[in-house]
């Protein structure tokens, strides 16, 4: 589905990513783990275009997207869910979903607020909201939701947008333990729709349940890229988290 080849990112004097290469198959779910500062979020930023990489190429479905700006990469199918919640807090839940759907609709049809295209979009947005049990809250401002609800909204919004590759940056951060299950269910649903998913997580157990492979980053480089079983057994994983003497 997509591959990155020798991606390097330098910000100022420090080299954050140092030659990362990996290939992700369509419909695959890959967990991305590594200690703090290993460059996981920068990796996502580089793929989605929010950070410019100095070296290497990114290929999506056979197409080189390395030079494209972030909105263009999104249009090609990359969906990004941000660590700090990328929802529009002052807009209602429904509006958040409508914006995502409008991105795909033609401007001409949606220009007049009372057009049929707009009504269809509204209905579709309501359906997505219902899917994550937010139908009661569609008129509330997104900022009033709980962390878990915000996360669900953001993920389902990416689906509404029509992303094929979802980059989930710490989806369980700021989410209560009860809601984690909901998030997990949603991710499984996303997988069942055939989407390719990459998840950055600190909770290795969470990640293990859906990933077919796990990418381990350390200091901007790929340490391991293997099945969850092999990765957890590898002594090097323990080294980077706990140090050699442990």
């Amino acid at each position: 589905m997509f591959s990155v080849s020798d991606i390097s990112v330098q910000i100022g004097d420090s080299s954050i990513l140092n030659g990362i290469s990996c290939e992700v198959l369509p419909g695959e779910c890959v967990g991305v783990i590594g200690p703090n500062g290993s460059g996981k979020t920068t990796f996502f930023n580089a793929i989605s275009g929010f950070v410019v990489h100095q070296r290497g190429t990114i290929t999506l479905a056979g197409r080189d997207i390395s030079a494209l700006p972030p909105y263009s990469r999104a249009q090609h199918g990359i969906g990004r869910v941000f660590q700090n919640f990328g929802i529009f807090r002052d807009m209602t839940v429904l509006e958040n979903l409508i914006i995502a759907l409008e991105g795909r609709a033609s401007l001409r049809k949606t220009l007049l607020p009372w057009s049929s295209a707009n009504r269809a979009i509204r209905e579709e947005a309501k359906a997505f909201a219902a899917q994550v049990k937010l139908d009661a809250k569609i008129s509330s401002k997104a900022g009033t939701l709980s962390g878990g609800q915000m996360r669900l909204l953001e993920i389902v919004r990416t689906l509404a947008f029509g992303a094929e590759v979802l980059l989930l940056d710490e989806p369980t951060a700021g989410v209560s333990p009860k809601m984690k299950d909901e998030v997990a269910n949603l991710i499984r649903y996303v997988q069942s729709q055939g989407k390719t998913v990459l998840i950055i997580e600190h909770d290795i157990n969470f990640v293990q349940s859906f990933s077919s492979r796990v990418l381990v980053l350390d200091q901007g480089q790929v340490l391991l890229f293997d099945t969850p079983e092999n990765v957890t057994r590898d002594p090097r994983l323990h080294e980077i988290y706990f140090g050699k003497s442990f």
Partner: peptide
């Protein structure tokens, strides 16, 4: 008024709120 209440107005509002999120939704800001 049509601009305000339609997709264009919505996108402008969103841009003021969270630029990166709007870019991630494919809009050419």
């Amino acid at each position: 008024y049509i601009l305000f209440s339609g997709p264009f107005g919505r996108a402008l509002r969103a841009q003021g709120e969270n630029r990166s999120a709007l870019l991630a939704l494919g809009r050419d800001i």
